[in-house]
Design a protein around this nucleic acid. Sequence first.
DNA 1: CGGGTTTGACCGGCGC
DNA 2: GCGCCGGTCAAACCCG
Length: 175
Amino acid sequence: MENYQMFLPVSLPSNVAFNSQVFDNFHGDTSNGMLLSDMKTNKLIQAAQVKEVVENGGFVGSETEIKSGGDRNKKKEKKTRKPRYAFQTRSQVDILDDGYRWRKYGQKAVKNNKFPRSYYRCTHQGCNVKKQVQRLTKDETLVLTTYEGVHTHPIDNPTDDFHHILSQMQIYTPF
DNA sequence: CGGGTTTGACCGGCGC
DNA sequence: GCGCCGGTCAAACCCG
């Protein structure tokens, strides 16, 4: 259970608990839905259709070539895109605290959607993980979160109750 | 002052 | 080329 980050390309929101199926499903078959439970409402919810939105399978580790020189630094990234992982969560709030610190860098209206999509980047130095959050018009109670990239650093959150919860769980776990 | 958000401009890809 | 579209930049702004 400690190795959840090895199986999940993303960390779970702190207000979302998990069971073992989460990892198995996500690791094995990403087209399955996974079971999450919203600890705020304490209801079991189905994060239906966990869909892996992958442009291609290849993952390139570091890509940005920041030149402090003259013109605007553009990433000479190839056509290769990082894999993206998406899941949707039933939540009243748009902002799901997953333990990482994000900086919003954009917001765009989505076609055929009345809600905008927000773009976030992980603020950890050198970490290029991005995510976008979008509420579905189809079902306003669903929030679709798409992660791109993998965090290569530990969660830096001093007031992280998710970790607290995790350690508590391990204390009371009979293993 | 430092860090995060807002928001219109900008940019590259793609279809016509 | 032109316009649309999705994604990003960055200056201004906000806030503790």
